[in-house]
Computed example of a mutant assay.
Amino acid sequence: MSISVLILTLNEELNLPDCLDAVSWSDDIVVLDSGSTDRTVEIAKAAGARVYHRVQDNEHAQRTYGLRQIEFRHLWVYMPDADEITPPDLRDEMLAIAADPGRPEVMFRVRFKNIFMGRWIRHSSLYPTWVVRLVRPDKISFERQINLQCVADGLEGRLQNHFYHYSFNKGLNAWYEKHNRYSWFEAQESLKSLRRGRLKLADIFSGRAELRRRALKELSFRLPFRPALRFLYMYLVRGGFLDGGAGYLYCRLLTAYEYMIVVKMMEIRRREQGLRV
């Protein structure tokens, strides 16, 4: 048994060829495009992918549409982003899972190696971060509009191998444009969290990395000087300085992203009060 592949795209002509080449072992590759104006769709069709089109309103709706409205040939669906490369060892591990009908899991998390300035920035990127990539589409759902949280209707597992993430491959201008959009959604989610008032402090000490990461994020919404604290945590506490110059630059970039979120939270609050920004 093989695995279907779902890739969401928007102007990914620089990243898509390598991503598609790394999943060419699948006989069912689907690209869900949200209005690319470059050669993304042409590249996908040339590689034999089935191409669907949908204007993206947010990541939650787009990914839900991809998994619910598109019919896949196989029970399992692998969901790499266009800037991710799937190495052979991860491929083989996933295919072995798909070939075993007795597996009780309905989704799997996987770690990744974030590549910046030609090197793996292990410490600055808060490795290991576990993200969902292999799923049974009928057994999962999503929460949040951005940086989705995946909820499984059943057991979840963890893959032992990694994929490679080239999030800066399209350049810093593209990175800033993307995170400018993301920061608006993050600001909205941050305010929702504050208004709910729920904070599971015990999860900070959980043995599961994804729960610790989520709890620390929730805690950060409630702290003053949030951008500066994030830099100190990433660069000093988590050892970003061990990644050299690339680590310093990466930590500064994520600090800028955090600052965008904080400022946009202020903007949302003022607009809710009928005040000008």
Rank of each mutant, 00 (worst) to 15 (best):
E84W: 01
R91M: 12
R276S: 12
R252E: 12
M79H: 02
Y127K: 03
R73P: 00
F185C: 01
R91K: 14
Q188E: 15
S125R: 04
R91Y: 13
S141P: 00
G240E: 06
R133H: 10
R144H: 13
H162P: 01
T129S: 09
E13R: 11
A22V: 06
Q56P: 00
F72E: 03
L20R: 02
R73D: 09
N114F: 08
E210D: 15
A174H: 06
A44I: 07
R144E: 12
L16C: 07
Y257C: 10
G102E: 15
Y257L: 08
R252H: 15
R91C: 14
F142Q: 03
G239E: 05
A152L: 10
Y235R: 02
Y248C: 08
R144S: 09
S206R: 07
L219A: 09
V55T: 09
G35P: 01
F185K: 03
G154C: 10
K45I: 04
G240D: 07
A22I: 06
E143P: 00
A215N: 04
A99G: 15
V237D: 00
G274Q: 04
E156S: 14
A215C: 05
Y182H: 10
R230C: 01
L8Q: 11
N147H: 14
N11M: 09
E210V: 11
R230A: 03
R50I: 01
M266S: 10
A47D: 01
K217R: 14
G197Y: 01
S4G: 15
A228W: 13
F116C: 05
A46M: 06
L191A: 09
L10W: 12
P104F: 07
Y176V: 13
D33T: 06
A256M: 13
S2W: 02
G154W: 15
I121R: 02
V132F: 00
S193W: 10
S193L: 10
S183C: 11
Q273I: 00
L249Q: 11
S190E: 08
N114K: 12
L134H: 10
S183V: 05
L236E: 01
E267T: 05
D27H: 07
D57R: 11
E272S: 06
A246Y: 05
L16E: 07
S220G: 08
Y259A: 15
M234H: 08
H165N: 07
R136A: 11
R276K: 14
R54K: 15
L32G: 04
K264S: 01
R144D: 13
C19P: 03
L6H: 05
H53A: 08
M265T: 02
L6E: 04
E105Y: 07
G171Y: 14
H165R: 07
V151Q: 11
R111C: 12
M94F: 13
P101Y: 14
R158S: 14
R252L: 15
N11E: 08
A187Q: 04
R252F: 08
P224D: 13
A22F: 03
D83F: 02
V30M: 02
L90T: 07
T255L: 09
K264T: 03
K139N: 06
R91S: 12
L242G: 02
L159C: 13
